[in-house]
Design a protein around this nucleic acid. Structure first.
Lengths: 209, 209
DNA sequence: TTATTTATGTGAAAATTGTATCATAATTTT
DNA sequence: AAAATTATGATACAATTTTCACATAAATAA
């Protein structure tokens, strides 16, 4: 019933609706949403329908109740605890990223193998990777961000799998496959950039003609 | 002819083939590739066919020549100059990321509005955002990474569009639409994490039953 | 040399994803 | 109160993407 991009679209709806809400709007029509997000209004209605979001014929949708429903779908009733494995530049940047907490995501610890990264006293603790498995089990962590060097990526994924982790957002350039128990979503920044470069170069070529 | 995910798949093929090459392999079959990437072998062959990569019936594909051809498709004959706009934590992390250069991508400058970020002498220069337009035109920059704070994202995209930029890899949480002249690809890290959380929670629910 | 094997290349089929259409119900206008 | 309007919700349709199936060519074996 739910298809691949549907949750990401739902998150886009949420962003837009929160914006509209902050401007004082109470109601919204499917084509208000579809216009700004450049999709069809029927897709918006279909997404809403699939998630049990209903409107009134002629009256549109009530923004407050859509937002409430979306948070319900996303399970926003409880704070999601997330750890970061690999506190290099990218890991550190994400560790200090301010955008998570207002979406109910809390970075509760970082893990690294370099002792000079460790931090116990102030802020979010950064611990030795050896303590990962115990920490994950004791704190019932299901989600992690992986930002270790490529060299140790495979080893670390195996470690995480063994710890009972449920999901990994993988920023290393190694592409990992999900298993029954462990969902791994890969973000390859270099590939994203190369893909963009390809599109732009292609566009440039076509303009020449 | 080329579809949405095809270039990203091609980049995955490239990674895998380089790995196989480093292990001493000379030839590869479509189902070697499809097995590790968990797609069908016919999709591999179709992708290759679409890009003019041919093999020998029964003999498979020659790794060297596929890799050569992929680099040709991606336009890897010349170094791609990229700038980073917004040298906060994420911008800085990407600025120092070591994975770009071996793919022919060179970060040639960073831009920020905070004077304490500026750096002219050592390493990649970090300049004031006011110098962006001139720099882009003088150095014929077509691609940038956007990592400014959300507050100034819209303003910065407008500035980049006016400068003649061709492509933006956008790491801000604001979703921008591409235009005829400017391709904008959005990476929303919070959304990616929320999406993963949804999938893992859902999985957990289904296991309970 | 002929038969057999086997991986490519391709066209048809299936699956997935997104759009168009329109009857219907709620609202507004007359 | 009846008529007209209009946005939803459902379904049919279209487009895209991926897989299946198999004829064909190249390589090996007999």
């Amino acid at each position: 019933m739910t298809n691949k991009g549907q949750i990401l679209r739902l998150l886009n709806y949420k962003n837009l609706l929160k914006h509209l809400q902050s401007l004082g709007f109470k109601k919204v029509f499917s084509d208000n949403i579809s216009d700004t997000l450049e999709i069809s209004s029927s897709l918006v209605r279909k997404d809403f329908g699939n998630f049990g979001i209903t409107g009134n014929r002629k009256g549109g949708y009530d923004i407050d109740s859509i937002l409430h429903k979306i948070d319900e779908i996303l399970g926003k009733d409880e704070i999601q605890k997330v750890i970061i494995v690999g506190v290099g530049r990218i890991g550190e940047a994400l560790m200090n990223y301010q955008g998570f907490i207002k979406e109910g995501i809390q970075i509760v610890a970082g893990f690294d193998s370099e002792p000079d990264k460790f931090r116990a006293e102030s802020g979010v603790p950064i611990l030795h990777i050896d303590k990962l498995t115990d920490f994950v089990r004791e704190n019932n962590i299901r989600i992690c961000i992986l930002a270790v060097p490529q060299m140790v990526a495979k080893y670390t994924v195996d470690l995480l799998a063994a710890s009972g982790m449920g999901g990994i957002l993988n920023f290393t350039p190694i592409k990992f496959q999900s298993t029954q128990d462990l969902t791994i979503n890969n973000i390859n920044i270099v590939h994203e950039l190369e893909n963009l470069i390809y599109v732009v170069n292609k566009q440039k070529e076509n303009q020449k003609q």
